[in-house]
Amino acid sequence: MRPTRILAALAASTLALTLAACGSTTEPSTPTSAAPTSAAPSTTAPAATFPVTIEHALGTTTIDEKPERVATVNWANHEVPLALGVVPVGMAAANFGDDDGNGTLPWVEEKLTELGAQTPVLFDETDGIDFEAVAETEPDVILAAYSGLTQEDYDTLSEIAPVVAYPEGPWVTSWRDMIRLNAKALGLAAEGDALVADLEAQMTAAVAKHDGLAGTSTMFLTHVDTADLSQVSFYTPKDTRAAFFEDLGLTTPASVTAASKDPDAFSGTVSAEQVDTFDDVELIVTYGGDEIVAALEKDPLLSQMPAVKAGAIVSLPGSDPIGTAANPTPLAISWVLDEYVTMLADAAAKVK
């Protein structure tokens, strides 16, 4: 990293700490893992030409030279460089589905082992982005194509290194666009396209094993509070979990599309008194365990949903890696695909 960039990074870090002292939700913590140098992938594709310019929702980013030190923030962005053979110097620690509490999910651990790499510096994002920790890894680029960055986050990170943000809005970037945007920033656009094609082929093969899954009308129920079922919350078609249904041959219920009134929102809520709105929902996916299913079946209103009546519910445990299966990411897709599709097919069979 050039000295001027280091100084800018430290300035950004100081600003972040000052904001934290004044009430910001961003509180830095000290990384605990050693940061490896990024490894160049093995490829026969033509070398990318730099500079590379990427337009996104928070601005325009130009990367002058092929990045050697890659940092990522927010969920799953690190899986793109890893899938392409590049080890980040720093990445966000896993805060969901981490069954052993080491900050990395099993498919990431397997990839690091395959690449012969140590675990990168893990950024603790419990209270927001740790700008100081990011700056300390001295990145040449920061990948965040799938993220919830605010404009302030983006501006602060941009003082450290060029930042690739989301193309449309927070937390709605498709897994395809996440791969393509992050790969382009690394000068690996062709390899990114090949990765997308490979994952699409894997999905087609997995779905082909299960007759009767295609066309099932599926809703992702979220934020279910067993103590208060007065509202029905769901992920809209903009959310990556709901969009993944389409990849697996399922369909989005017309009722969910109609209830998704904010075209930019990734979730929505309606009163349980209007639950008959969702009479076209054949299959429900949600987070939780048996207690969630039991609560839905006992509730006088929600139990009237066709999917609940039929017991066509896939409940994903949040404390286990399979809980992340519903949110497709570059490395997780291959790792959980067959199990997730089987769970969907078994539940869908109850309404066929």
Rank of each mutant, 00 (worst) to 15 (best):
V196K: 10
V293P: 05
L195R: 13
E136I: 06
P317I: 15
T236Y: 03
L149G: 01
A194N: 11
A325L: 05
V134L: 05
L181C: 06
T252A: 13
V86S: 02
V87M: 09
V121M: 14
L195G: 04
D276F: 00
L143H: 06
P263K: 04
A294Y: 03
A94Q: 12
V172D: 00
A117N: 05
A76Y: 05
S260M: 09
K184A: 00
E273C: 06
K352Y: 09
H210Q: 13
G249D: 06
L195K: 14
T150E: 13
T25P: 15
L248T: 05
A40P: 11
E68I: 03
F234E: 01
A242D: 02
L283V: 02
A259S: 14
A133M: 13
D193Y: 08
D299W: 08
A183G: 06
S260T: 06
E159Q: 15
D198S: 14
A8M: 13
T61N: 03
P88Q: 11
A312F: 03
A347C: 09
T32H: 15
E27K: 15
V89L: 09
A92V: 07
T72A: 10
A243D: 05
T37W: 07
T43A: 15
S233V: 01
P263Q: 05
A312R: 03
G268F: 02
W171D: 03
W75H: 02
L19M: 15
F220Q: 01
S158H: 05
P139F: 09
K352N: 14
G268R: 09
A94P: 04
A71Y: 01
K309A: 08
A57E: 07
V163K: 07
W175R: 14
A258C: 12
L58G: 00
P167E: 11
S38I: 00
E291D: 15
W107Q: 00
V207Q: 09
P41D: 01
S271P: 10
G85V: 02
S233I: 04
V293M: 02
F234Q: 06
A310Y: 03
P330W: 03
T43K: 15
A310C: 05
T324G: 10
A57N: 08
L195D: 05
L112Q: 02
D338A: 08
G212N: 12
G101E: 15
E291R: 13
T216A: 07
L250W: 09
S38P: 07
D98M: 15
E191Y: 08
A189I: 02
G311V: 02
P41Q: 10
A40D: 09
T44M: 14
G288P: 03
A243I: 07
A325W: 00
T204C: 08
P300G: 01
A294V: 10
G128T: 10
D247H: 15
L10G: 07
V172R: 04
L221F: 14
G187R: 00
V196H: 02
E68Y: 13
L15T: 12
A242C: 07
T204K: 13
N74C: 14
V164Q: 00
G311H: 14
T251A: 09
M91Q: 00
G23W: 05
N77E: 06
L296K: 03
I313P: 00
S319M: 13
A35M: 10
